[in-house]
Write a protein that binds this DNA or RNA. Structure first.
Length: 680
DNA sequence: GTAGGGTTAG
C-alpha cells in the first residue's frame, strides 16, 4: 500500500518494481536531512505563556508542598493509587499541582468518575486540570467520551497548545479526521505534537497519502514524528524500510529530539513479526544510563517504554524466560511492565505465576484484572474467573467480553446469556467481540430466537466484519434457517473468506442440500479460494447425505492430489459412511483397517449405521463391539445390534445382547439422560 | 501535574 502511495506522490513513476525502493529512498533522504529546530516545548511556552501560568493559590509557597506532591506523583507512576489517595487526603494544604496529580492518577486508570469528582471539588483549576480531564475522556473508548471531552474543551476559560493537541488526537484516535482537521486548522499556534497527532490519525485511518503529505510539512520533525511514520510503514508491511529510515536518522541526526520513540516503535514492530533477535539488537544499541533522573528528550537512551517494548517482544514470541529476565532487571516498573508480564504468563497458561505477579503488583488496574479473568476463563476455571470478575474495582467492556467468551468456550451457555443481559442492565454497550460470542452461544443452544435478536443488534450497532458474518452463517444454519444463512452469505460479497465458504457449504451439507453444497464448492474453486480440510469435511458430508459414491471418492482423492491436504480421521469417517451406505461394506471395513489412525467412534458409528441399512449382522457385531469398547456407557450400539438381531429373527443373539446390557448396567434411559444433561 | 511511542479479547 505504501508503495502505491509513494508512487502516486512521485510523478513520472510507471514501473512498480523499479520504484519499489527508489522513490522511498528519495522521499526519505529528504526527510532525514531536515535541520533540527529549537525544542518545541520552549516554542510552545512562549506562545501560551499566559494560559499555562498557575492561578493565585499556587503562589502559596509551592516548595512547601513540593516533597508531598512529588511523593503522590511517584506513587501514581508506580501504580499505587490508593496510597496516593491516602497521602492526598491527609494533606492539610493542597495546591493545584496536588489536585492535578491526584486527578492524573485516576485519569491514567480511566477511573473518570473519581477524576471528575475531584475536578468538580477543586477550589480552583488551571489549564492543566482541564487538559487532564479532557485527555482522560478522550482516552476512554467510544464517542460518548469524546463528546464529554469536547464539552470541557469548549467550556474551558483558557486553552493552551496541549488542550488543542489532546482534542485533536482524541478525534484522530476515534477515526474522526474531519473534526481533527478542523481543529488543527483553527489552532492559534501549532506544535510538532499537533502535526504528529495528525500523521498518526491519518495512518490509523488508512489515509497514507495524507499522512506522508503532512509528515513532509512538519516544520520541526522529531523522533515522535518519525515514530508515527514508522508505525504506519510497519502496519503496511514495510518493516525493513522503516528500520532503514530509523537507522539513517540515528546516524545523520545525532541528537534528534525523542529519537528513542522511533527506536521503541521499531522494537515493537520487530516483536509483532516475531523478529525478536533484531529487536534485541536494537534495544542493546540504545545507550542505557542507570540514573533515572529528569529525562532529557535530546539525550538518546533507553526509557521505560524501551524496556516494556522489549519485554513485549519476548512475551509475544512465547519467550517468557527472557521476558522475565529483563523484567527483573528493571529499575523502575510501571503498570505496563507488570501487565505485559502477567499477560505473558496467561498466554503460557501459567496461572500460578500470573497470580503470583498479580499479587505482588502494587496496584493492579483494570487490564491486570482482565488478564487474570481471561486466563482462568480460557482454562475452564470459570468459578475463579467469576470471583475475579466480581471483585474487580471497575469492570471494562473487555472484562465482560472475557467472561462471556470464557463461558461460551466452556459451554456454559446459560451463564453467558445471564452475563450478557446483566451487562446491558449495567449500561455497558456490547461490541463486535461480545456479539460474536453471544452468536456462538445461540449456536450452542440452537436458539434461533436469541440468534435473531443478536443479528438485529449487529445490524444496529456494529459494522459487521467477516468473523461476525461467519458466526451468523453458522448460527442460522445450525438453527435450521438455511435461507437466512444464505442471505448473510450472499450479502457478504467481497468480504467472504474461506471460513464463510466452509460455513455455507457445511450448512447446505448438513441440511441435505448436496447439489447446492457441491455447486458452491465448484464456485469457490473457480474464484480461486483455496479450500481447507474443513471444506472437504463439508463436501464429503454432502456426498454422504446424497449417496454420491463416485463423487465422494473422487473428492477424497482430489483433496490429496490437487490440494495437498492430508486426510484426517473425519474425512475417513465420511468416506466410510459414503461407501458403506452404498452397500460396499467390506470395502468400508478395509478402509478402516488401512487408514493411518486408530478408528474413533465416528468411524465405527458410520460402519454400524451402514450395516443397519444393509442388514449385515456379522459386520455390525464387529462395529458395535468396537464402539462399546470406546464408549462403554453408551447404549446406542447395543440397542442397534439388538434391533438388527430381532429383525433377522435371531432371538438367541438378541437375548444375549440384552443380558450383556444388564450385565454392564446399561439402560436405554441412561443414555438419554446423559445427552440431555450435557445441554443443561 | 497534561498532548505524539509500548499492554488485555474472536
Amino acid at each position: 500500500m505504501t508503495n502505491v502511495v509513494i508512487r502516486r506522490l512521485i510523478p513520472g513513476n510507471a514501473n512498480g518494481l523499479v520504484y519499489r525502493l527508489m522513490p522511498q529512498a528519495r522521499l526519505f533522504l529528504r526527510l532525514i536531512t531536515v535541520p533540527i529546530y529549537p525544542n518545541h516545548a520552549s516554542l510552545q511556552s512562549s506562545c501560551f505563556a499566559s494560559a499555562s501560568k498557575p492561578t493565585s493559590s499556587a503562589d502559596v509557597k509551592d516548595a512547601d508542598f513540593f516533597p508531598l506532591n512529588k511523593r503522590i506523583s511517584h506513587l501514581i507512576r508506580t501504580g499505587r493509587i490508593e496510597q496516593a489517595r491516602e497521602a492526598f487526603d491527609k494533606m492539610k494544604q493542597r495546591n493545584i499541582v496536588t489536585w492535578n496529580s491526584m486527578i492524573n492518577g485516576y485519569v491514567k486508570r480511566r477511573e473518570m468518575a473519581k477524576a471528575r469528582k475531584l475536578f468538580d471539588e477543586m477550589p480552583e483549576r488551571d489549564v492543566v486540570s482541564w487538559n487532564l480531564m479532557i485527555s482522560g475522556y478522550i482516552s476512554c473508548r467510544g464517542s460518548r467520551y469524546v463528546e464529554e471531552g469536547r464539552m470541557l474543551f469548549d467550556r474551558m476559560p483558557v486553552r493552551d497548545c496541549v488542550s488543542w493537541n489532546t482534542m485533536i488526537s482524541g478525534y484522530a484516535k476515534n477515526g474522526r479526521m474531519v473534526e481533527a482537521l478542523k481543529l488543527f486548522d483553527s489552532m492559534p499556534e501549532r506544535s510538532v505534537v499537533s502535526w504528529n497527532a495528525m500523521v498518526t490519525g491519518f495512518l490509523q485511518n488508512g489515509d497514507v497519502v495524507r499522512a506522508i503529505e503532512f509528515f513532509e510539512r512538519i516544520p520541526q520533525r522529531d523522533g515522535a514524528s518519525l515514530s508515527a511514520l514508522v508505525s504506519g510503514l510497519i502496519q503496511n508491511g514495510e518493516l525493513d524500510e522503516a528500520a532503514r529510515i530509523v537507522h539513517e536518522c540515528g546516524k545523520r541526526d545525532e541528537g534528534m529530539e525523542d529519537l528513542v520513540h522511533a527506536y521503541n516503535t521499531l522494537i515493537a514492530g520487530y516483536g509483532q513479526r516475531g523478529r525478536v533477535g533484531e529487536a534485541r539488537r536494537l534495544f542493546d544499541q540504545i545507550p542505557y544510563c542507570h540514573e533515572m533522573g529528569k529525562e532529557d528528550s535530546r539525550r538518546f537512551e533507553r526509557n521505560i517504554v524501551s524496556w516494556n517494548s522489549m519485554i513485549m517482544c519476548y512475551v509475544k514470541t512465547g519467550n517468557i524466560v527472557c521476558a522475565r529476565e529483563l523484567f527483573d532487571q528493571m529499575i523502575e516498573r510501571d503498570t505496563f511492565s507488570w501487565n505485559t508480564m502477567i499477560s505473558g504468563y496467561v498466554h503460557m497458561s501459567d496461572m500460578e505465576e500470573a497470580a503470583n505477579l498479580f499479587c505482588r503488583m502494587p496496584n493492579p488496574d483494570t487490564l491486570s484484572w482482565n488478564s487474570m479473568i481471561l486466563g482462568y476463563a480460557q482454562l475452564g476455571r470459570l468459578k475463579l474467573a467469576h470471583d475475579f470478575f466480581e471483585r474487580m474495582p471497575q469492570k471494562s467492556l473487555v472484562s465482560w467480553n472475557s467472561m462471556i467468551a470464557g463461558c461460551e468456550k466452556n459451554e456454559d451457555f446459560i451463564g453467558a446469556v445471564k452475563l450478557f443481559s446483566q451487562m446491558q442492565l449495567e449500561g455497558e454497550k456490547p461490541d463486535r467481540h461480545t456479539l460474536s460470542s453471544v452468536l456462538s452461544v445461540s449456536t450452542g443452544l440452537v436458539d434461533l430466537h436469541l440468534g435473531m435478536q443478536i443479528h438485529q443488534l449487529v445490524t444496529k450497532t456494529v459494522v459487521a466484519d467477516s468473523p461476525i458474518n461467519n458466526s451468523l452463517i453458522t448460527m442460522y444454519s445450525r438453527c435450521g434457517a438455511i435461507k437466512e444463512a444464505q442471505t448473510v452469505f450472499d450479502e457478504m460479497k467481497l468480504q467472504k473468506d474461506v471460513i464463510s465458504w466452509n460455513a455455507m457449504i457445511g450448512g447446505y451439507a448438513s441440511h441435505g442440500f448436496a447439489a447446492e453444497a457441491l455447486e458452491l464448492f465448484n464456485l469457490m474453486k473457480t474464484l480461486k479460494v483455496r479450500p481447507t480440510y474443513i471444506t472437504f469435511i463439508a463436501v464429503l458430508n454432502a456426498c454422504a447425505h446424497a449417496g454420491l459414491v463416485e463423487e465422494g471418492r473422487s473428492q477424497f482423492k482430489s483433496m490429496i492430489s490437487e490440494f495437498g491436504i492430508e486426510p484426517r480421521i473425519e474425512h475417513y469417517a465420511s468416506l466410510v459412511d459414503i461407501i458403506g451406505r452404498h452397500g460396499h461394506l467390506e470395502e468400508a471395513k478395509d478402509l478402516i483397517i488401512s487408514m493411518p489412525f486408530k478408528p474413533d467412534k465416528a468411524v465405527w458409528g458410520a460402519l454400524l449405521g451402514a450395516c443397519r441399512v444393509h442388514n449385515n449382522v456379522k459386520l455390525a457385531k464387529v462395529a458395535a463391539e468396537a464402539l462399546t469398547s470406546l464408549e462403554p456407557e453408551s447404549s446406542a450400539p447395543y440397542v442397534l445390534l439388538y434391533n438388527m438381531y430381532a429383525d433377522a429373527g435371531l432371538w438367541d443373539e438378541a437375548a444375549a445382547v440384552r443380558s450383556l446390557m444388564d450385565e454392564n448396567k446399561i439402560t436405554k434411559h441412561s443414555a438419554y439422560s446423559r445427552v440431555n444433561s450435557s445441554h443443561c
